[in-house]
Nucleic acid binder design. Structure first.
Lengths: 134, 134
DNA sequence: AGTGAAGTTGACGTTAGCGTAAAGATAACG
DNA sequence: CGTTATCTTTACGCTAACGTCAACTTCACT
């Protein structure tokens, strides 16, 4: 009933999530993970794995570790209590808006760079034909 | 014939380009700008302004200052000598490819986040209707 | 002379997210 | 018992692009 014997060593974690030991210890120091101890050694529970998944996903979304910590806290501080969920959703909305702005800006920059680039390429072509004429 | 009397003080530069003095001194230290001196004080030439424009544009494109320095060097080291131009174009192409990858990833992340978000919003709506039923 | 504005150099501080080296503990293997 | 492997803590290093003092100099006024 309670979670048992699905514990993983740090190495197993690293292998299955493609992270380094340093990263896992770092996340623990930042209170994003809470592995239990067997003497000296860390043992990661199923819960830790769940949290790590969310952490990595959060990073893909561009959340900072601090943002992620807050979101994780909200989640398991009280299951899915309404107010906490509302805050989470709010954060997600803000982040989404940010990302959309970023995407738009990136799009403009790409367009502008393409422009510049075609200029350079034409210049290059002209130079090449001059060389050929010699 | 030679460039004259279109010199600007650091303050005038800051005002017209929306940067701080620290930034301009930093760029000089990094050899991106080469203002002349009137005793202690810096005076920025038309050339400096041109370079600064390019710097800021480069930043919008996401180039690092070091990248930008190299590109600027190529430009005025020899006008528009063919080989240098070729390198510049190459750099621009690479950067463009990077930006396009970034945009794609960002797009995926946005889609995924939208998904998660709609989930959260539905959850929130269900909670609200439960509250209303009480 | 005094004062205030604007400029200067030098140097340490900041933020994020780990990398990396040093030194010691623990345990399995042969 | 010695070696090797894996783990641990501690703590400094790193990159980028400036921010933020501190302590001075210069210049224009008054």
């Amino acid at each position: 009933m309670t979670t048992n014997e699905d514990l993983m060593t740090i190495r197993e974690m690293c292998d299955s999530f493609e992270v380094t030991p340093r990263t896992l210890r770092f996340y623990e120091a930042k209170e994003l993970l809470f592995p239990i101890r067997d003497g000296q050694k860390r043992l990661f529970t199923r819960q830790d794995r769940g949290r790590l998944k969310l952490i990595l996903r959060g990073k893909r979304f561009g959340f900072s570790l601090e943002d992620i910590r807050q979101l994780l806290d909200m989640y398991d501080r009280s299951g899915v209590q309404t107010e906490q969920l509302a805050r989470t959703v709010e954060k997600a909305r803000e982040r989404l808006a940010q990302m959309e702005r970023q995407q738009a800006e990136l799009g403009e920059a790409i367009a502008e760079l393409r422009d510049q680039l075609s200029w350079g390429e034409q210049e290059l072509a002209r130079a090449a034909s001059r060389d050929a004429a010699q």
